[in-house]
């Protein structure tokens, strides 16, 4: 069977090729380098530490299983980040233990209300946002995705994504005022 061109790409971390070949230690190295970035994303999107850790683990399990499909045309970190977003969005969609979205600032939990006391903590404010608004805000304003990408990843319309961003910014500005 003719095999495709295998000219090594400078973008490919040699540990990726080793991990594709079954080298778990190489994959652990990739995990160590990227776990902080993946966990930060999961934590902000989930709003809850334990679930974020669960999602972070799931991202790396999926990465191992899909690693042979990484073609080296983008950076491994870019590929992993997109996989992480999709995994967390999917996990959030199927999780039943997410508390019902808070509908307005007056009902925001204590971890957001205390911002009014002058203790600025954006992480906590983000965690206190309603679920969809939080996810769109993190993806758009923190991670830099476009509305069309967010809409596709979350299975919502572009208009809904824009609306949720508008809502998230409004809520955050309200508590930061």
């Amino acid at each position: 069977m003719p095999l495709p061109d295998r000219t090594p790409s400078p973008l490919v971390d040699p540990r990726v090729a080793a991990a594709v070949g079954g080298d778990l230690r190489a994959f652990e190295g990739l995990y160590r380098d990227h776990v902080g970035r993946v966990h930060a994303l999961a934590l902000r999107m989930c709003g809850r530490g334990a679930f974020a850790e669960e999602m972070t683990q799931e991202v790396f399990v999926k990465a191992w299983r899909k690693l042979h499909l990484f073609d080296g045309r983008s950076r491994f970190s870019t590929w992993l980040h997109r996989l992480a977003v999709n995994t967390v969005v999917d996990g959030m969609r199927h999780e039943a233990h997410e508390p019902e979205a808070t509908e307005n600032v007056a009902e925001l939990p204590d971890n957001v209300r205390y911002l009014r006391q002058g203790r600025i903590d954006l992480e906590r404010a983000i965690a206190g946002l309603p679920t969809k608004a939080r996810m769109v805000f993190v993806l758009h304003d923190v991670e830099g995705y476009k509305h069309e990408e967010i809409a596709e990843m979350m299975g919502i319309s572009g208009g809904t994504a824009r609306g949720q961003l508008h809502r998230a910014r409004g809520l955050l500005r309200e508590v930061l005022r």
Partner: peptide, 28 residues
């Protein structure tokens, strides 16, 4: 004001515990 706060967010947050053991158990 929001942009300034977002700009100060760390891009990496290490989990409170080492998650590798769970990953390794699932993938091996």
């Amino acid at each position: 004001d929001l942009a300034a706060l977002i700009g100060g967010l760390p891009m990496e947050i290490e989990p409170d515990r080492d998650l590798w053991e769970g990953v390794e158990a699932a993938v091996a």
